[in-house]
């Protein structure tokens, strides 16, 4: 899964002819206690983390809190990272998603969450994603791949990943049997994997 997320490399000093360190290289430095490496790493990963956390948590102040928790946790646990665990961004995003989901699931009774989600149109949800992602090349590819899914695959994945719902909640929200949702989450994600060219 090394090439699952493209290596992030800063280009600002490209004029010097020296490649800037990748996020993976920076993380190794961070594990040795380098605060300056962490500052460079922050520039690479803070926006993806904050964007994802904000989508799930919604509340701006809480999103900042969770983002801060995630970044400090990356600092604290950097020594656990090894490249065979995938890209540094992959590692960071997995943690960010888990922490954001923990926050919404513990903060809100499931009924509140159901109401919050039920109040949203799934189509609008997808349009929002599509709109937010439209600006970047990576996003363009994700958007194109998402639009290649069936409606049920796309809605299930968007509710689970971008909204932080459990698959049980997704099944209720989409009024679809649990088994069907499990299957759509898997085959939808597999289709995304193939479309994005993620390899193991």
């Amino acid at each position: 899964m090394n090439d699952s997320v493209r290596p992030l490399r800063r280009t600002i000093d490209a004029g010097l002819g020296l490649p800037a360190p990748t996020a993976e290289e920076l993380l190794v430095e961070v594990a040795r206690g380098s605060e300056s490496a962490f500052e460079q790493l922050y520039a690479l990963i803070a926006s993806p983390i904050f964007g994802l956390v904000r989508r799930i948590v919604r509340d701006h102040a809480q999103s900042e809190e969770v983002t801060q928790e995630v970044l400090v946790e990356l600092w604290r646990t950097a020594s656990r990272y090894t490249p065979e665990r995938g890209s540094a961004l992959n590692w960071a995003m997995t943690l960010a998603h888990r922490r954001a989901v923990d926050r919404v699931r513990s903060a809100q009774a499931s009924t509140d969450r159901d109401q919050r989600v039920a109040a949203m149109s799934n189509d609008r949800e997808f349009d929002e994603v599509a709109e937010e992602v439209a600006t970047r090349l990576e996003s363009e590819q994700v958007r194109r791949c998402l639009s290649g899914l069936t409606d049920l695959q796309r809605q299930s994945i968007v509710l689970a990943y971008y909204n932080g719902n459990t698959y049980r909640e997704v099944a209720e929200l989409l009024d679809t049997p649990l088994g069907t949702i499990k299957t759509r989450l898997r085959d939808g994600l597999i289709r995304m994997r193939d479309c994005l060219g993620v390899t193991g």
Partner: peptide, 19 residues
Amino acid sequence: AELVATASRLGAAVAVTPP
């Protein structure tokens, strides 16, 4: 492992610069 990596791509696609 592959599907987790795929999910991360979904996450990175909604990047927003924090304050």
